[in-house]
Amino acid sequence: MSDEALAERGAAGAAAPVARPVPFRGGGFAPRPMRLVGLVLFLVLLGLWELGSRTGWIGPLVLPAPTAVFEAFRQLVVSGQIWLHLGASLQRLLLGWFGGTLLGLLVGLAAGLFSMARAGVVPLVAALFPIPKIALLPLFIIWFGIGEESKVATILFGTFFPTVIAVYGGVDNVDRNLIRMGQSFGLSWLSIVRKIVLPGALPAILSGFRISAAIAIILLVAAEMIGAEYGIGAYILLAGNLMATDQLIAGVAILSMLGLAVSWLLGRAERYFLRWR
């Protein structure tokens, strides 16, 4: 702004100084948790859906009413069938996920710590990770038979790679200064790994668990759609074959709850293990 302009302004201002509050420009961009809104939206959607079904606007075969779905779910619980399905699914899920996670932790840690292991593992993982593991299911069936083994193997294989990647990425991201510190105090190699590297990599490892758990559920359902008597995937497939959409949706809702439960558990684990953050 030129001097004359300033002088002019000054003169005008001196005549009649107008006091105005500074306009507020901050705020926003900081979503606050509002629990109720989600619940209300969910209930409103359910209500609309129910209304649509009752008025016949949504055909019962296309999408049964929520009450019908709930009835199917109730039947499942009353007949005790749900425990058979859920039990079979959880067993596969836990075996596969634990196995894949354990192996992934070991291999990922090795790749994070030793040059030799890294040189071998990283290209291999890069090549194998992008394969959709469902594509390997037929192969696993040939190798392990149509029973439990092939299903567990698919989940194990599918969770192994993301875990490896999360673990060695986590180890890479551990603050080198902390490791230097450990060495400078003469800590043993094992102590450095146990007390500095592993806790430092834990945030990345836990977020890797979220990814591998989601993959495990996808693979579980896929694997159960081939040659399984029990399991949520099998239940959904059967319901589909019988055009029993109420049962089908009930099965899908169980999956949703399973996913929610897993992510709740992992959230608890994160809160417990990362409370120092």
Binding site: S188, K195, I196
Partner: peptide
């Protein structure tokens, strides 16, 4: 160290104890 190099997951006492544990 200039950047302190404390383990964020250990308390003050835990950080001191770390270098004695071996």
């Amino acid at each position: 160290f200039q950047d302190f190099a404390l383990l964020p997951w250990r308390t003050a006492a835990g950080n001191v104890s770390l270098v004695l544990e071996d």
